[in-house]
Amino acid sequence: MTPRNRTLLIVATVIVLVGALAGISVLLSSDDPGEPVASVPEGGEVTLPENVEENQPVEVIGAPLPSYDSGAADSAIAMPAPVVNGASFDGTAVSTGGNDGRPSMLVYLAHWCPHCNDEIPELIELQNRNGIPEELDVIGISTGVDSNGPNYPPSQWMLDTGFPWPVMADDEQATAFLANGGSGFPYSVLLDGDGNVLSRSSGSKSAEDIAAWIQEGLAGAAA
């Protein structure tokens, strides 16, 4: 056999092998769609109300916070966060910031982000363990909406995850996220009752780490 024929035979064999593997894959895989890691955490399937919008207009009153950098001392501590007036997916008014006398935790989440999908069950677990202080208002902000991304639409995603707190739908430009200095999801901002920044954090955390972060931030407010 000439070297050329040998080469042809080997390449043809490899192509046949690839075809065989394709057949095996079809036979072995079920008809169910794949389960990407960025999938919705387990929760009850809830029907979406009618007339929802995945993005809502957002109004920012006050100066935006400096962009958060996890590698540096946070210059936004003690700065007043801007008041952000927006709405939930169904149009219900939701606001962040301001001096209503109650501390609040703003949690910015994107439906397609695997780390955000990891964060939500941790938050819910913490809530179920009564690990979130009663005086703390938690507000979720759905931002970075991408209609081509996993778990779209975020209105359904939030229902499916069982996220128990009010949710603001950010606008297409992620104005609410950027106004509070967001640079990466999941992103949390802890505010005191006067609307001043106690602490900021980016990246997914365990329930224990979230609890410690909240405790530390609120202790700073009390001091």
Binding site: V37, C113, P114, G144
Partner: peptide, 14 residues
């Protein structure tokens, strides 16, 4: 970093 950016997912996520 363990975060996703506005423009896309984190490299640690698969």
């Amino acid at each position: 970093t363990g975060t996703c950016e506005l423009t896309g997912p984190s490299c640690t996520a698969f």
